[in-house]
Simulated scan of single mutants.
Amino acid sequence: MTPRVPDDLDLPRASGVLVYVPHGAIPDRRGFAPSIVACEFAKRMRSVTLRLVAAAESDRAGSFVWEGLQLERLPNRRVYKRLCKLGIRPPGVSLPRDFLAVCKKVKPRLVHVHQMEFDIAEFGRRVGWSPAVVLHAHVLSQRPHVARGIADHYIAVSDYVKTGLASMGYPLDRIATIRNGVDTRLFKPPDPALVHFAKKRLGADPKAPILGFIGRKHDIKGYPAFLAVAERLLGRDAPLFVLAVGADPERPSGERGFCASREREARLAEGGRFLSLPAMPQSDLAELYRAIDVTLLPSLNETQGMAVIESLAAGCVTISARVGGIPETITDGVTGLLVDDPLDTDALYEKTAYVLEHLAEFASLRSAARAYAVANLDWSVSAARLEALYQSILA
C-alpha cells in the first residue's frame, strides 16, 4: 500500500520559507519532536524552497548544507537552555541576535516557528518588516498573548490540539491540523528471518517476546506505570524481555516518580531481562523496533504521540491510553489497544499480559496497524498538506 498524497500540488515554485526550531538541533540526536518534524517535512517539500535554522547543541555552529537544504546552526545560549529546562519562556527569549541576523540576510516571505511563544510583534519590529508567520503547536502550554501578535496560521498536530487552541482563544479559522508522521520505509516490520538476530543483539532470548517503552522516561509519559507493569510481568513464569528507550528527565526534582523508577529499574536490571537505553536517532530507533513485539505507552496526556505512530508503522501491538490525541491514531481493537485510565496499572497489566500470552491472535491487528500508518501517517502525506498551506499563504 502506498501513502495517499494529494495530487493537486502542480503549483509554481515558491521560495523564502524559513523554518526555525529555537530549542533543538537539526538533525535530531535526542528524540526531540520539533526537530524531527522540521527535518522530515523539509526533506519532502516538492515546490517550496526552505532554509532551516536551529540550535547547534552538540554540533558546530555556522552555515551548512544538510540533505540538500540550507541549514543555519545558531550558537548555544546557556541562559536560554537553563530557562527551557525550567519551563520558563519570558517574552523575546526566542529572538536571539543570531536568528535575527539570519532573517535580515535572507528576508524570508514566511517564517515557520516550532514554538508557540514566539513573539511575532517584537520580531517584526526588530527585523524591520513583517513576513507571514506560522506557529507550530506540538503541545498545549501557551495561551495567546495579544501583545505578542497573532500568527497568519497555526498548525496543530491533532484535532485534540486544534480544539484546545481554539478553547484558549486562538482564532479557529487560522488553525489547521497537520499530523506528525512516520517514515514508513524506515519504520517497518522486519523480515521474520531477522527477528532472531535483532533480539539476540539486545541480549534477549530470541524465543522470548519483547515488551518495549519508547519515549521520555517522565511521569507524564507513563514511565512509572510501565515499570510497575513490567515488574509484575517479569515476575511470572513466562519468557519475556523488557526494553525501555528514551531520555531521562532533565529536572529529576520535577518528577514525583523519579526515585521510585530508578529503584525499580535497578531491581529489574538484576534479573538480566531488562535493558534501559538512552534516546537515540531515528535510524537507530527503527532498528530496535524490529525486535519489539508489544509496546506499552501509557501516557497521562499526549497531543499525538510520535512513538505511537512509529509503533504502528513497525507492526507492533501498541497498547496506549485513551487520552489526548491518541484515539485519533489508534482505533481500539483494530490498529491497537486502549485503556481508559493510564494510572490503572491493574488494567494495563491484564491487557499486556493477555497480548503477550496470545501474540499469534494479534497478527491481523499488527497488519492493520501497519497498513493504516502507511496510508495515513507517512510523512509524505502530512508534508503535502503543509506544502499546500505554505502555497496558500505565499500566493
Score class of each variant (00 low, 15 high):
residue 151 A to C: 00
residue 354 Y to G: 00
residue 224 P to Y: 05
residue 56 A to T: 05
residue 245 V to I: 00
residue 359 L to V: 15
residue 130 S to N: 10
residue 383 A to T: 08
residue 59 D to T: 12
residue 307 A to C: 02
residue 319 I to Q: 00
residue 233 L to I: 04
residue 71 L to H: 05
residue 229 V to D: 11
residue 25 A to W: 04
residue 304 Q to T: 06
residue 322 R to Q: 10
residue 316 C to P: 06
residue 108 P to M: 02
residue 302 E to P: 10
residue 307 A to K: 05
residue 266 A to V: 08
residue 123 F to N: 03
residue 350 E to F: 07
residue 172 L to M: 06
residue 260 A to W: 02
residue 138 H to S: 01
residue 11 L to D: 12
residue 155 I to Q: 10
residue 376 N to E: 15
residue 51 R to M: 11
residue 16 G to M: 03
residue 232 R to P: 06
residue 119 D to C: 02
residue 210 I to M: 11
residue 174 R to P: 04
residue 215 G to D: 02
residue 357 E to Y: 10
residue 112 H to K: 03
residue 355 V to L: 10
residue 259 C to D: 11
residue 20 Y to L: 12
residue 319 I to P: 01
residue 285 L to N: 00
residue 310 E to R: 00
residue 196 H to G: 13
residue 69 L to G: 12
residue 234 L to Q: 06
residue 216 R to W: 12
residue 166 A to T: 07
residue 276 S to P: 03
residue 373 A to D: 03
residue 167 S to K: 13
residue 99 F to I: 06
residue 52 L to D: 08
residue 271 G to F: 08
residue 47 S to Y: 13
residue 85 K to E: 15
residue 53 V to E: 05
residue 87 G to S: 11
residue 200 K to D: 15
residue 42 A to W: 07
residue 335 T to W: 08
residue 242 V to H: 04
residue 297 L to S: 11
residue 51 R to E: 15
residue 282 Q to Y: 03
residue 223 Y to F: 15
residue 354 Y to Q: 01
residue 113 V to F: 02
residue 18 L to Y: 01
residue 144 P to F: 02
residue 295 T to A: 11
residue 331 T to H: 09
residue 34 P to C: 06
residue 337 L to C: 01
residue 364 S to F: 11
residue 295 T to N: 15
residue 370 R to P: 11
residue 356 L to K: 09
residue 73 R to F: 04
residue 135 L to A: 08
residue 41 F to L: 14
residue 106 V to C: 11
residue 66 W to D: 08
residue 364 S to I: 14
residue 247 A to L: 08
residue 105 K to P: 00
residue 99 F to P: 14
residue 63 S to R: 13
residue 367 S to E: 15
residue 247 A to V: 06
residue 363 A to S: 07
residue 361 E to G: 05
residue 339 V to W: 12
residue 325 G to N: 02
residue 179 R to P: 07
residue 389 L to A: 12
residue 34 P to F: 09
residue 292 I to C: 13
residue 19 V to H: 02
residue 254 G to A: 08
residue 165 L to Q: 07
residue 388 A to C: 04
residue 149 G to T: 04
residue 305 G to N: 05
residue 376 N to M: 09
residue 34 P to V: 08
residue 368 A to D: 13
residue 387 E to S: 08
residue 197 F to L: 14
residue 69 L to Y: 09
residue 99 F to Q: 06
residue 150 I to Y: 12
residue 164 G to Q: 05
residue 297 L to W: 09
residue 97 R to G: 07
residue 25 A to H: 07
residue 221 K to R: 04
residue 218 H to F: 15
residue 346 D to L: 11
residue 74 L to T: 03
residue 124 G to S: 14
residue 238 A to Y: 13
residue 183 D to W: 10
residue 352 T to R: 00
residue 126 R to V: 11
residue 307 A to R: 01
residue 393 I to C: 08
residue 379 W to L: 00
residue 176 A to S: 15
residue 370 R to S: 05
residue 172 L to S: 09
residue 51 R to T: 15
residue 326 I to Y: 04
residue 185 R to F: 02
residue 371 A to G: 08
residue 160 Y to S: 13
residue 285 L to R: 00
residue 28 D to Y: 09
residue 240 L to I: 13
residue 61 A to T: 12
residue 72 E to R: 01
residue 245 V to D: 00
residue 145 H to G: 12
residue 257 G to K: 04
residue 120 I to H: 11
residue 16 G to I: 02
residue 306 M to Q: 04
residue 84 C to R: 14
residue 182 V to L: 10
residue 268 L to Y: 02
residue 44 R to H: 09
residue 225 A to I: 04
